[in-house]
Computed example of a mutant assay.
Amino acid sequence: MTKDSHGDLMDHIYRHQRHFYDATRKYYLLGRDQLIEALAPPFNGTVLEIGCGTGRNLLAVRQRYPQARLFGLDISEAMLATARAQSQDRNILYARADAAAFDPQQLFGVGHFDRIFISYALSMIPPWQAVLGQVCGMLPSGGELHIVDFGQQERLPKLFRSALRAWLAWFHVTPRAELRIRLEELAHAEDACLQFTEVKGGYAWLFAMKKPAFM
């Protein structure tokens, strides 16, 4: 799927949903606020969200870390329109791009980010592994990648798991069973520390990958 076709698909899905997205998603996109609490960027540090959607998360980051420099990227222009409208006067820079292939210097005038986070977006991006490889290269020494997304519901009832998967499929959401393995491989390659937390019996997976800091 090309960037334009995937962007058109996301625009089609969220053209109307974006107006009530935040009000409904708060009930089942678990772990987002836990991720934001763990970001703890340095003073005046740079924070990038991949798949920023309506900007809800970046607004929460702005409230929690007022001195951070914030950037948001999404492939859906419809969602970005909502994000920009909701983030007026909050000093957050947004851009439309393919998360698997973008130039941060060209988009934002920034080559690296102290913190990068991805909240329930990898499960909607077909080349999700390419996204991970892309953003890992944008973390400086001591930088951190934080991810929350649907897990495999390992300890939840089978009927619930089947119903959830069927419902998610309507929205082109596919939980990534290999996400933990891929992040472990990347952490090993980067000599980074990887923290993994299950949320609500594996309903969601929460990760924090921290690159070593070199003096």
Rank of each mutant, 00 (worst) to 15 (best):
R64K: 14
R84M: 12
A101V: 04
D11F: 13
F207V: 04
A81S: 15
G202K: 10
A99G: 11
A38L: 11
D74N: 04
A130R: 07
P127A: 12
P42F: 03
H172M: 04
Y65G: 02
Y28A: 07
H188W: 09
L70H: 03
L80P: 03
L183R: 05
F171Y: 15
E178Y: 02
G137T: 01
R18V: 11
Y203N: 12
T46L: 01
Q67D: 07
R62V: 01
L164H: 04
Q86T: 00
T197G: 00
Y120N: 11
C52Y: 02
T46A: 12
E178F: 01
T82S: 14
T46M: 06
S119L: 07
C193T: 07
A204R: 11
L186S: 00
S76C: 08
Q34V: 04
Q67L: 12
R96E: 07
M79L: 15
G55K: 05
M1T: 06
A97N: 06
L35R: 04
G143H: 05
M79C: 08
M1C: 03
S141F: 04
Y21T: 06
F150Q: 05
R32Q: 15
H188G: 10
P104G: 04
Y120P: 09
A95E: 04
L39Q: 01
R56P: 00
S5M: 14
P157R: 01
D33Q: 13
Y14F: 15
L80C: 09
F108A: 05
M79V: 10
Q17N: 12
F171W: 14
D33W: 06
S141T: 10
Y21S: 10
L145K: 02
E144G: 08
I116G: 01
E184H: 04
A68L: 08
L73I: 14
R115P: 02
F160P: 03
E37V: 07
I50W: 01
P42H: 06
L145E: 02
G51Q: 06
L9K: 13
G45L: 05
L164D: 05
L48Y: 08
L30F: 09
R56T: 10
F207T: 07
G143P: 07
D191F: 02
L183T: 09
R155W: 15
P157D: 02
L80Y: 06
H16Y: 12
Q86H: 14
L9A: 08
S5P: 00
R161G: 01
H12D: 12
A130D: 14
G142C: 03
E37G: 08
A83G: 09
N57T: 14
M1H: 05
R180K: 14
F113S: 08
Q134Y: 00
R161S: 15
K3V: 11
R18N: 12
I36R: 08
G31D: 14
E178L: 11
F43A: 13
Y203R: 03
R115V: 13
V199A: 12
P66K: 09
D89Y: 09
E37H: 02
R15M: 06
F207N: 06
Q134C: 03
A60Y: 01
K158V: 14
R90F: 12
W205K: 07
G201V: 10
A100D: 09
G72M: 06
F207L: 09
M209C: 02
T54E: 12
L48S: 01
A189N: 09
H188Q: 15
A40Q: 11
Q152V: 11
L59C: 11
A130H: 10
G201D: 10
D11L: 11
M215C: 09
A130Y: 00
V135S: 09
L48D: 00
L164P: 00
I118W: 02
Q63E: 15
